[in-house]
Design a protein around this nucleic acid. Structure first.
Lengths: 341, 341
DNA sequence: CTGTTAGCGCGTTCAA
DNA sequence: TTGAACGCGCTAACAG
């Protein structure tokens, strides 16, 4: 005997059947104006709130989604999560959040957990698991939005085959702008610190860097390409230290993300190099901290809020109009010049 | 006709009733070893996953919780959220996340939404709504953990009256250590930048500051107490600018949070003041950025991860052992000396 | 030890 | 326009 007010109570008080009360409240079927008012008055008086668990079971639609990221405590995801949350909220959805740590077993476990909870859709940042395996675990029809690092040529076919929508960034314009910006200042000796060898975002950004350098007619010195062991300040510091301790060092370093770049700033300071005079530094993402370091970090804006909106919009569209063609959305990146280059 | 495999399918394949299959899988009631194995084999073969929505309706227990914060994109909350998530995950719970923007109407709306979804418990950071109103909206028995800014004397009675657990920080030791640290360096002219007048965390921390100053035998110059219009870098900058443009300015400024402190650093720079030689600065919270500004921010550690664990532990305890006495947990804060004081 | 029945709270038949 | 009956998938209560 729960003390929650349920539909039957509203029906009793307004002197109609539960079915009529339901129809009156949801407007599914027409109901006479008089009973409609009586039902609404009763619901108001009892402060009735429908039980969304029961409704979910009946309607086979829970109005919940899963948002699966590597680590919500990472600087980039909270802004994405907030944007997604705002957008789906206006459609009556709420989100479960899951952390996967980029570990394949954890990713499978969390995905199955969410499937058990009958979420209406999944937004997941692709880390360890291949899109195929993700699609496999969530089942063939669950609306699925892949939050990928970077746009790649093949995506058009991919999304159709996987029956998934995809949201990512187009890193090329931002990186091209960064290279051009340095070049226009007479800097042509540019190094790049990527993430761990084989990790996705860093590798893609490194490739865009090579493309942009070629476009600008600049030579890439392979000795100036470093892999950080992670995407953190500390690993960035170490990679920069290796690079800066060489007899020939570049005049500028571009980085796979902002935390690496901030590590580079520290390594530069410890190597008695002035930024940007002795060494220009450009990051990637524009995390909030980028504006708080000194000098403020010149970086490439990864539009987290827009990415979040795009993810939410894609998922809502897929849920409400399941037959729309699968889409790949790539949000352009752009250079923002501050104090480090 | 869903293509999900349900309990009935498992029962059919293993030649038992759904109830027996349920008992075998959940171990609720003893089942003969032979049927147990048959049921498990069938479940395995069909890749059966129980529908947690249906189970939730039947058991009146959804194994979901609501985590309601002002804004998940704020620098402090993600670490708390991550810790909570890890802790409740090991109990089989997942969390809905909700942003309230510290707005009373939104807080009520989100709370009701979560109640509709039959969450088993609520963790909420108290912003606009009084604890009484929160308790009122979630109903008298829902396990409720209040994530409050600061420990106050009256809390012992409060939690019992509200039938809520409470987790907060004890700001006093950190602030006392900060004042003592400055004093031991011969600095006695100390100002304080609080948050907006009337906002909770800033007011509490300002009071602790006054207490600590009195303890140290130091005089508080009320002209050196400023209210920032928010808890952001920009509002901190403006407040510091007002303070530093006075003919008599303090030798040190303590702040209600790190973002304000970082704003003070910028204002100092723009006023051609060297930190810490001309002006010492101490923040509060130790957000990740604190380590990335230059000089690194001396601040008071607000142990986000420990706060998260404490919230999760309190909620799990309340859910599993509803009759344990209501508790107020206060986590000690401590000064961490870096480069700005 | 196992099966049958019933019901969690809702929405949707189908019949009146 | 309304009501009675049923079922979403699962499990607690009651028989056997």
């Amino acid at each position: 005997m729960s003390l929650e007010v349920v539909l039957k109570d509203v029906a009793l008080l307004s002197g109609v059947s539960p079915a009529t009360a339901s129809n009156a409240l949801s407007g599914t079927r027409p109901v006479s104006e008089k009973t409609r008012q009586r039902v609404f008055a009763a619901a108001e008086e009892l402060n009735y709130r429908p039980n969304l668990v029961a409704r979910g079971l009946r309607r086979q639609e829970t109005r919940t989604i899963a948002l699966l990221v590597a680590d919500i405590a990472n600087p980039y995801y909270p802004a994405v999560a907030r944007a997604i949350h705002d957008r789906i909220g206006s459609h009556g959805y709420v989100s479960f959040i899951g952390n996967t740590d980029g570990d394949p077993d954890t990713e499978v476990r969390v995905l199955e957990e969410m499937r058990s909870r009958s979420v209406d859709g999944v937004i997941m940042s692709t880390m360890a698991l291949s899109p195929e395996r993700i699609r496999n675990v969530v089942g063939p029809t669950t609306p699925l939005v892949l939050l990928t690092g970077e746009w790649v040529e093949s995506s058009g076919h991919e999304v159709r085959r996987l029956r998934a929508d995809e949201v990512g960034t187009d890193d090329a314009p931002g990186i091209r702008e960064a290279v051009e910006h340095l070049h226009s200042q007479g800097i042509s000796e540019i190094g790049f610190i990527s993430g761990p060898a084989g990790s996705v975002p860093g590798a893609g950004r490194l490739q865009r860097f090579r493309d942009a350098m070629a476009e600008a007619g600049l030579h890439v010195n392979s000795a100036w390409i470093e892999n950080a062991d992670g995407y953190t300040l500390e690993t960035g510091y170490d990679a920069a230290d290796r690079l800066l301790s060489r007899p020939d060092r570049p005049a500028a370093i571009m980085c796979a993300n902002d935390l690496i770049a901030i590590g580079v700033l520290e390594a530069a300071r410890d190597n008695r190099l002035t930024v940007p005079a002795d060494l220009a530094v450009i990051g990637f993402d524009d995390i909030p901290t980028a504006k708080h370091v000194s000098p403020r970090l010149t970086t490439i804006i990864n539009p987290a809020t827009l990415v979040g909106y795009a993810c939410a919009d894609a998922l809502m569209r897929r849920i409400e109009l399941p037959d729309t063609p699968f889409e790949h959305t790539a949000l352009a990146t752009h250079l923002v010049v501050r104090g480090t280059a």
